[in-house]
Design a binder for these strands. Structure first.
Lengths: 197, 197
DNA sequence: CGCGACGTTGATTTGCCTCAACGATTGTGG
DNA sequence: CCACAATCGTTGAGGCAAATCAACGTCGCG
């Protein structure tokens, strides 16, 4: 894993799902662009079309929605080897409704919608990759719906903490609260309570 | 639409996303099986692997999860032209954790995991179709997560009622309550309140 | 150093749940 | 075809988990 991390890139991720020839790899590399973002910088904003899928090489980002009452709701975190975007905006190429913000100085790779679509048409291996990834993401999202329906705030926090300990350490607590659907105050009280037991 | 409904089938759904030759269609028809299920019958149960994706030709089904406290949580409804399954069990081919139950006498079409996978490998058009469908499903599921995080019980009910009026009329109210994450009693009180305004 | 961002703590409120009882409808066996 | 039991929705009283509001401590950074 340490050896792999030095070469962390979308391509590595793809190779976990499909075998690529050198030609395939070249095909793909042509559509990837790498860049840096500073902490607090936005890479997606409401009213702008989310043109890219973003892969995190190094750093941490989150996507969130701001409700009518002004409170924000974290949709997703992304640390190394995760994707993030306004997925609905991306697949429909309509204006975004959410923010994607860097929580740390980060290095990202991006691929553009039209390039991805045309690559998938030309080369079924990538079609396959994106199918498998989307299916996994859907199954994951369904589990999250269930978690909110079935579990108390305390149980959700426990689940999240044990599932993503590395995220808990890196991001502000109010972002976690807004991911789990509780107030920062209540999250604070839960942590205190859970420490004393 | 009425004309199309007479031939409602998975194949019709696929053709909305990709163009199929007659040979493609034959390929696909070979892996589809049609059957009937009676009201209250289960087509997926915990501890059994969910081998199929199920498409609703006629009727209504729902999938739900039973929590530790015995209350059930509706994950999804499916009426005509919708898919339903334990999707996580399906894509991983591991034991299911949820029920899928017919709410009415229904006619369904089913396709088996291994057949779908091998068809996708042979024919990229189907790979493409299932990619697009999974992406849409994922985007949809994310919206639902947001809805639960951002909206009150009353707002969720309003949203659901205006989005799926046909479902509201067909299924028991307690299933809707469990979909929206509230008790049947509270849903009943909300309806009364919303009627008087 | 001073300010803004973040976390904590306590008092109070509230949205929704629980529990219990009661109609209305449906379906089923005698 | 009626009787009786399920199943489903409604209503009300009381309770609790989590939200709101407000005040205060602390740390990092410009």
């Amino acid at each position: 894993m340490p050896a792999q991390e030095e070469f962390l890139s979308i391509l590595n991720n793809i190779k976990k799902y499909v075998d690529l020839t050198e030609v395939d790899e070249k095909d793909f590399i042509d559509i990837v662009s790498t860049s840096k973002v500073k902490k607090r910088q936005f890479i997606v904003q409401p009213r702008f079309v989310c043109k890219h899928q973003t892969y995190v090489v190094k750093g941490a980002l989150r996507s969130y929605f701001v409700g009518n009452d002004g409170t924000d709701h974290t949709i997703q975190f992304a640390i190394e080897d995760w994707f993030i975007s306004d997925f609905n905006s991306y697949i429909t190429q309509t204006p975004a409704t959410i923010f994607v913000e860097a929580l740390e100085d980060s290095v990202i790779q991006q691929i553009e919608y039209k390039d991805v679509e045309s690559l998938c048409e030309r080369n079924p291996k990538f079609e396959r990759y994106f199918r498998l990834v989307a299916q996994k993401a859907f199954a994951y999202s369904q589990r999250r719906v269930l978690s909110k329906l079935d579990k108390t705030a305390e149980q959700r926090l426990e689940e999240f903490t044990s599932m993503y300990p590395s995220i808990v350490q890196r991001v502000p607590q109010y972002t976690i609260a807004s991911y789990l659907g509780m107030t920062p105050e209540f999250l604070s009280k839960l942590r205190k309570k859970m420490a004393n037991s």
